[in-house]
Amino acid sequence: MRITRYAAGFAAAGLLLAGCASEAGNQAEEAPETTAEVEEVEFPEGSTMAEIVEAGELRVGTKIDQPGFGLANTAGEPEGFDVEMAKLIAAKMGLSEDQITFTETVSANREPFLVEDRVDIVVATYTINDKRKELIDFAGPYYEAGQDIMVAAGNPENIEGPDDLAGKSVCSVEGSTPAENIRTNYPEAELVLYDAYSKCADDLRNGNVDAVTTDNVILTGFVAGAPDAFELVGNPFTEEPYGIGVQKGEDEFRDFINDVLEEAYENGTWAAAWDKTAGAITGTEAPEPPSVNRY
């Protein structure tokens, strides 16, 4: 049969290729160990925490395409600062890492994920703002980012800030705050919208857009991955406090997460999480942690 012949040829080619090692294979390494320690804890009957512990599963919405904060490794498990935050919270609830279920939340569907009870928390470079607070509640902030611009290495279009974006094509993600900001405050910029920043990075690399704009920490991740292709303008023009999204009205759960964050600020686990993830990529020291906002 023709098909079997093709199959045999394909398998032979595969074996031949398998003989020579790929660079990625040579660098495949053990997953780094976690900083979070599991503790036994008791929660009041009927509280959200008790329910989650009883279910034995913490459902976390995160990103899987943002280096430093949430990027899936080749095994498919997300890694990054956001992921570490989720692990901290899980550990304080007495849940092990295996009991966390990560779900991808792209920018355009983070609120629906919480509103529809698909996840318990969203840790996904998620900016706290009043509009979102109408639908959900936020613990934190656990990090202060700012919107910045990434351009091709050498900055051929001479973009120094958002005002230089007029008439330029700038890529961002539908449903994100940076996209809304450009849309309302810098309408002369030509906005190109994908569903994930990695597509934006590809487009910038291929020269299809002049710039990519979003929070600086997301951009630094991309720049660190390809320093000869990308460059950060380094002129943040907004304040983006990252919060941990919980379902509307979950005040008790929110307080609990805030306690976890404050404790982590003090005992250094927060800084350790930074050093291990985003800090390891960008080579920057952990910043001063932001103060938690218990509204």
Partner: peptide, 20 residues
């Protein structure tokens, strides 16, 4: 819509977020 063309489905995604 998944490839940066602002068509009806892209609008659906945009509004399903901003006008939930």
């Amino acid at each position: 819509a998944g490839f940066a063309v602002a068509d009806l489905t892209a609008l659906l995604q945009r509004l399903s977020n901003s006008a939930a």
